[in-house]
Amino acid sequence: MALGRSRGGFPTKIHLKTDLDGHPPDFHLTGGEASDTTEFETSLDIGPDIRPRIAVTDKRYDSRANRVAARARGITPVIPRRENSKERGQFFPKRLYRRRARIERTIGKLKRFKRIAMRCDKTATSYAAFISFACALILVKSVHAT
């Protein structure tokens, strides 16, 4: 279920998959109370049938299972360790992680649509449809900008 329940309304998380240029080929929704760690493999499997070389995420996706799942698919995980991780101190490619800023900019572009930022839709289907429309506009604008 993609719409959670809380006093504030319908909290929803958008798990956005982008390329390193910030173009969003696909996404999936979960309820706001769902853990991000469990959605990593789903994020790897959605979208066009393209094999990425790296998966850049934030700390919310940090787990040994996610790193193993990425490596099993031939993908290098670029996931920073949490503060309480027992495996801290290992090598971390900071140069690759800096590219995550482009992904954050894409999320910012999505949040410019008031309907997405405010999560006004009552059903997950209509919310996902509008996110798809916004992603299409972002892709079209990126093609015409160059």
Results as ranks from 00 to 15, higher is better:
A2N: 06
L3Q: 07
L3P: 02
L3T: 07
R7K: 10
G8K: 05
G9M: 05
F10K: 08
F10P: 03
P11Y: 04
I14M: 11
H15P: 11
H15L: 03
L16H: 10
T18I: 04
D19P: 00
L20Y: 05
D21H: 12
H23I: 15
P24D: 01
P24V: 07
P24Q: 07
P25F: 05
D26M: 01
D26Y: 00
F27M: 12
T30L: 09
T30D: 02
T30M: 10
D36L: 08
E39D: 07
T42P: 11
L44F: 09
P48M: 14
I50P: 00
R51V: 07
P52Y: 09
P52N: 05
A55E: 01
T57A: 15
Y61S: 06
A65V: 08
N66G: 06
V68H: 01
A70N: 02
A72V: 10
G74M: 07
T76G: 13
V78M: 08
I79A: 01
I79N: 01
I79W: 00
P80F: 11
R82C: 09
R88I: 06
G89T: 02
G89I: 03
F92S: 00
P93V: 00
Y97H: 03
Y97A: 00
R99L: 15
R100E: 03
A101H: 13
R105M: 11
G108N: 04
K111C: 04
R112P: 03
R112M: 05
R112L: 10
T123G: 09
A128G: 09
F130V: 12
S132K: 09
S132I: 01
S132Y: 10
F133Y: 03
C135D: 02
C135T: 01
L137A: 11
S142Y: 04
A145F: 14
